[in-house]
């Protein structure tokens, strides 16, 4: 177990930011801490790193207590804060050199490592330019370079794709995924569920300081959405199709939207759907299986919670 918390709680006055969190993350996992803004993700991360003290509960990261053994913990854990900042008047290289000195790396070793991480993050050409000229995406990559500088065993990323354009975000996610291949455990937080769901092995959904759902994305979809298969089709005309499709035994739900129909089914019944559409005399333009999205899981879960209440 790389990260383990028990009953972790943080109170700011009367506000409970994190409420009795039990988190277990295994070595080599990519774990997504997901949830809306203000649901306690960043507070949790700060407690894991010993940057804020828990009000109650225990934390162990790599077997170390963040409040009592922060130095050996922070030597092995890299942290990329949300909206990471650098010293603007210094170059990328100088910023990393400062971090290397704070980590107590010898000069020769730090030179080699800085070169390597800048190369890896695609920043080698701008290494000697001041950070003030960097774009948001470049800063984020410099942040990851800084994290990798200490060759960490665990990497904690807070909202890593926030403020990046879609292309840069995808690129950045690929870089994060490449960490897994090196055996680094990754904990990332995000409120952009659909962006990070592809790279997470497991996710935990946060709501008001509590971990309300946890598991693999497919499992959660299966559990919350019932039928995990969602079929999208475009056909003209739509008249009468809804009733016919609804009549199929595997279909639990049919929705109409601007582009066509969405079915929820317990099995992959694309052939039957195609046959039904053609038998109804309609023209079939497209038929596809949709991946379940976490956004939906999240929205549906809270719909149910509210209905139950």
């Amino acid at each position: 177990m790389v990260i383990e918390t028990q009953g972790l709680t943080k109170r700011y006055g009367k506000v409970v930011a994190v409420d009795g969190l039990d988190l277990r993350i295994e070595a080599g996992e990519v774990y997504g801490l997901l949830g809306p803004n203000g649901s306690g993700k960043t507070t949790t991360i700060l407690m894991l790193l010993g940057l804020t003290e828990p009000s109650a509960g225990t934390v162990r990261v790599l077997g170390l207590d963040p409040t009592r053994e922060p130095l050996s913990l922070k030597k092995q854990v890299g942290y990329l804060p949300d909206s990471v900042g650098f010293y603007n008047e210094m170059t990328a290289w100088e910023n990393l050199a400062y971090t290397a000195r704070l980590n107590g790396l010898p000069r020769d070793l730090s030179r080699i490592r800085i070169e390597r991480v800048l190369q890896r993050m695609g920043l080698a050409e701008v290494a000697h330019r001041p950070v003030s000229a960097f774009s948001r995406g470049m800063r984020q990559r410099l942040g990851l370079a800084e994290v990798l500088l200490k060759e960490p065993r665990v990497v904690v990323l807070d909202e890593p794709t926030l403020g990046l354009d879609p292309e840069a975000a995808q690129e950045f996610l690929k870089m994060i995924q490449s960490l897994k291949a090196e055996g680094i455990t990754v904990l990332l937080s995000s409120h952009l569920l659909h962006q990070v769901q592809t790279i997470c092995d497991r996710v935990g959904l946060f709501h008001k300081g509590k971990l309300v759902l946890e598991g693999r994305v497919e499992e959660l979809a299966q559990r919350i959405l019932g039928g995990a298969y969602r079929i999208r089709l475009e056909a003209t005309p739509l008249d009468g199709l809804v009733e016919r499709l609804q009549a199929l035994p595997e279909v639990s739900r049919v929705q109409t939207d601007t582009r066509g129909l969405r079915l929820e089914a317990s099995l992959d019944i694309r052939p039957q759907v195609a046959r039904t559409v053609l038998e109804a005399g309609a023209a079939l333009h497209s038929l596809s299986l949709e991946q379940p999205s976490l956004d939906e899981v999240y929205a549906r879960y809270f719909q149910e919670v509210r209905h139950a209440a």
């Binding site: 700060l46 790193l49 940057l51 922060p70 130095l71 050996s72 913990l73 922070k74 030597k75 854990v77 890299g78 942290y79 990329l80 804060p81 909206s83 990471v84 900042g85 650098f86 010293y87 603007n88 971090t99 704070l102 980590n103 107590g104 942040g143 800084e146």
Partner: peptide, 14 residues
């Protein structure tokens, strides 16, 4: 204000 504090304090120093 430069958002550097949490990054610096995440390094192994007090």
């Amino acid at each position: 204000n430069r958002n550097t504090l949490s990054r610096i304090l995440a390094q192994p120093i007090y």
